[in-house]
């Protein structure tokens, strides 16, 4: 199968040095778990917007924890306080830890000052998922949007984060764009900081 997990040799947990957290998990195991998460939430809701919100909530909890962990592990207990700093922290550090690679692109919205976009050609959570036609623009990337929102909110950058499919010319599959719209107070603070 596509995902290959590593098998760790057993050692006493106390003998082991503090882990760097670089171990990979099996992609298949993750895909089945995520699939079950979506299926479970589908039984609990009666419309698609509600399903999207529930996936986002599930991701939010991950984001909050990941921020805490990575600030400790990678940043020496410091966290980013500037807008561009936190965005590139998500784009590179968070993405690398969660998905094993940096995100394909990080762009500033052209129409609005407060919008930023993180784009992925093929989001890991969407690798095996085909959205049925009757579900319209629903994107399981809502889970990842939730992670991003969790990181931003807990770092003091409240924002509305959504996941969208964007068709790409000459490609059969659309890419996924995570759209981040910051709250007004964040931009005001940025302006004050100069």
């Amino acid at each position: 199968m596509i995902g290959v997990g590593k098998i760790k040799p057993y050692t006493n947990v106390l003998d082991r040095p503090l882990s760097k957290g670089k171990q990979e998990v099996s992609l298949s195991a993750f895909a089945f778990l995520f699939s079950e998460l979506v299926q479970y939430n589908q039984t609990q809701v009666d419309n698609i917007a509600e399903l999207e919100r529930r996936l986002e909530d599930a991701g939010y909890a991950v984001g909050a924890r990941v921020l805490e962990l990575l600030c400790h592990r990678e940043k020496g207990n410091r966290r980013e306080t500037r807008l561009l700093g936190i965005l590139s922290f998500i784009h590179s550090t968070v993405w690398k830890v969660l998905f094993g690679k940096v995100a394909d692109s990080l762009e500033k919205g052209t129409e609005h000052e407060d919008e930023y976009m993180i784009s992925e050609k093929e989001l890991l959570v969407n690798r095996f998922i085909s959205i049925p036609k009757d579900m319209g623009a629903f994107n399981c990337g809502a889970f990842v949007a939730g992670i991003v929102k969790g990181v931003l909110d807990n770092a003091g950058f409240p924002a509305v984060v959504t996941a969208h499919f964007v068709p790409v010319d000459g490609q059969q599959r659309p890419r996924t764009t995570i759209l981040i719209k910051f709250a007004e107070e964040v931009l005001q603070r940025e302006a004050r900081l100069g």
Partner: peptide, 12 residues
Amino acid sequence: ELYTDYVLKNPF
């Protein structure tokens, strides 16, 4: 293999 990947891992 394709069936196990793209059908069975698809939540829908």
